[in-house]
Amino acid sequence: MPNYRIIVDLSQRMLYLLDNNVVVRGFPVGIGTMLNQSPEGDYTIINKQANPGGPFGAFWMGLSKPHYGIHGTNNPSSIGKRVSRGCIRMYNADVLALKSMVPIGTRVTIRQ
Rank of each mutant, 00 (worst) to 15 (best):
51 N>L: 11
38 S>L: 02
3 N>H: 02
7 I>F: 02
50 A>E: 06
62 G>T: 08
38 S>R: 05
84 S>Y: 04
31 I>W: 00
101 M>H: 00
59 F>W: 13
88 I>H: 05
93 A>D: 08
64 S>D: 06
29 V>E: 08
103 P>C: 09
103 P>G: 10
96 L>S: 08
109 T>P: 02
40 E>A: 10
84 S>Q: 04
29 V>P: 08
68 Y>H: 08
89 R>F: 04
62 G>L: 08
107 R>F: 01
78 S>D: 10
93 A>I: 00
7 I>Q: 06
96 L>W: 01
27 F>H: 13
51 N>C: 08
32 G>M: 05
59 F>H: 14
14 M>R: 15
12 Q>D: 15
71 H>C: 14
51 N>R: 14
42 D>R: 14
9 D>Y: 02
98 L>F: 07
83 V>L: 07
74 N>E: 11
8 V>S: 07
29 V>S: 11
75 N>F: 12
67 H>C: 12
23 V>C: 06
38 S>Q: 07
80 G>Y: 04
58 A>R: 00
6 I>H: 01
72 G>Q: 10
68 Y>N: 08
43 Y>W: 01
104 I>C: 09
49 Q>F: 04
19 D>A: 05
9 D>R: 12
95 V>F: 02
6 I>G: 03
25 R>W: 04
23 V>T: 13
40 E>L: 11
56 F>A: 08
34 M>N: 08
92 N>T: 00
68 Y>M: 10
71 H>N: 14
50 A>R: 11
6 I>F: 02
97 A>K: 01
61 M>S: 07
103 P>M: 07
21 N>D: 15
26 G>L: 04
17 L>N: 03
20 N>S: 15
95 V>C: 03
101 M>G: 01
107 R>G: 07
8 V>D: 09
37 Q>I: 11
11 S>V: 01
95 V>M: 04
16 Y>Q: 07
52 P>A: 10
98 L>I: 09
32 G>N: 09
95 V>N: 02
94 D>K: 07
9 D>A: 07
5 R>E: 06
47 N>K: 15
14 M>D: 01
82 R>N: 07
23 V>G: 05
77 S>D: 14
97 A>F: 03
45 I>D: 08
57 G>D: 10
68 Y>K: 09
92 N>Y: 00
44 T>N: 15
32 G>Q: 10
33 T>H: 08
65 K>R: 15
1 M>F: 00
45 I>V: 15
28 P>W: 09
87 C>V: 09
2 P>Q: 03
58 A>W: 00
84 S>M: 08
52 P>E: 15
63 L>R: 06
85 R>K: 13
28 P>N: 15
11 S>Y: 01
103 P>Y: 03
30 G>L: 02
2 P>D: 02
40 E>V: 12
15 L>H: 03
5 R>S: 03
21 N>R: 12
46 I>C: 06
72 G>A: 12
47 N>Q: 12
67 H>L: 14
35 L>W: 09
111 R>N: 11
41 G>E: 01
71 H>I: 10
64 S>A: 09
94 D>N: 11
106 T>S: 11
26 G>I: 02
42 D>W: 03
7 I>Y: 02
50 A>F: 03
54 G>I: 10
85 R>L: 13
24 V>W: 02
68 Y>C: 07
9 D>C: 05
106 T>E: 03
75 N>P: 06
